[in-house]
Amino acid sequence: MTATLKAIGIGKRFGALAVLEGIDFDLSSSAAIGIVGPNGAGKSTLMAVLSGALVPSAGRIEMDGRDITELGAAERSGLGVMRTHQIPKPFLGLTVLENVLVGATHAGAAQGEAAYALALGALDTAGMRRLANRPAESLGLLDRKRLELARALATRPKILLLDEIGGGLTDAEAEELVQMIKGLRAEGIGIVWIEHIVHLLMQVVERLICVDAGRIIADGSPAAVMAHPDVVRAYMGGV
């Protein structure tokens, strides 16, 4: 069954500062959207609003027609809206397997053997099987990013929100990541991917949204959006 996440007129203000204004889009679990924009455009705030970490100041978020604007991150994750963090946030005192089990037994709502199967499957998908018993504190950056992804996968997400997961990786590592995300796509998980590294995005998404100063300035096929004059101006500056 396809799930649909809808953002309707989303705005977010911190005091007098408007970080997001009038954001509208919708996404089905059979699609992949990339979100680009210069630094400070409001991308991470958008991610936080979609995942439930922040409550929007205006607008509505719907999942399959149900208004979920008031639901916190924990409740949304149970409905299948799952995010990864730009800076990985592993549970350092737990092993890799235990990190993933947190997701499987909570948002994933699985118990006992079912939870183990879910967690082990997520570790396999993320290429972390060999590291299952390692303490999370011993992992390097790439493995921490993989763990972030594995934990999210173990929750059986319908829509996965990826926040700059490609940053700081070598080309080969990034390529591996792209293949992994393509695999998730093929399994019917909807992807919203915020990324600075545009050529990575282009390999996965069929739709691109460009955000600048808290507004959507272009939305469409990746090639069309990258050629859009407003997008060129936002990135390159000029008149």
């Binding site: 970490a53 916190g72 991150a73 994750s77 799952m82 995010r83 946030k89 549970f91 737990l94 909570h106």
Partner: peptide
């Protein structure tokens, strides 16, 4: 234990 290590990440995992 997840709360101890990172409350925000724990919340996002349900």
């Amino acid at each position: 234990q997840a709360i101890r290590d990172n409350e925000e990440a724990a919340t996002s995992l349900g």
